[in-house]
């Protein structure tokens, strides 16, 4: 069992990065690694409520974030600075995520065996 951090960095609907990174995260959790996920930069947009957005022509995978509890993924982090830069309030986020600043992100990364970026 390894401590593995996935850093999501991409906006939700202009590429498949976020979606494929989510699949990877779930696969890691399914084989009992201790996984955590950090939403950073434009990936914070993945956390805004997006129920129906068929016009994007990409699967609405952010709705699957609610699976985290079923996969025992309880370390969900969001970069505070990224939210501020985009004027997003924590109350707007669709799932519970812990706000972290630069020092906390540094500490988070230092606790990992492996770090994967989307």
């Amino acid at each position: 069992m390894q401590n593995i951090l996935l850093i999501q960095r991409h906006a939700p609907f202009n590429s498949s990065h976020g979606r494929e990174a989510l699949d990877l995260l779930l696969a890691m959790a399914a084989v009992e690694h201790q996984v955590s996920v950090l939403f950073s930069a434009d990936a914070v947009y993945q956390l805004l409520p997006t129920q129906e957005q068929a016009a994007f022509r990409l699967k609405a995978y952010p709705r699957s974030f609610k699976l985290f509890a079923l996969y025992d993924i309880d370390q969900v982090y969001v970069c505070q600075a990224s939210l501020l830069q985009r004027n997003i309030q924590p109350s707007q986020l669709s799932i519970n995520a812990q706000l972290v600043d630069a020092a906390q992100i540094q500490q988070l990364i230092s606790q990992q065996h492996q770090v994967i970026c989307s």
């Binding site: 390894q2 699949d23 990877l24 696969a27 890691m28 084989v31 690694h33 492996q114 770090v115 994967i116």
Partner: peptide, 18 residues
């Protein structure tokens, strides 16, 4: 291979480089 195999193999690895 599947993502599951990749995930399992991480147990044998010291460093993953992307």
């Amino acid at each position: 291979a599947g993502l599951a195999e990749f995930a399992l193999r991480q147990s044998n690895v010291d460093k993953l480089v992307q």
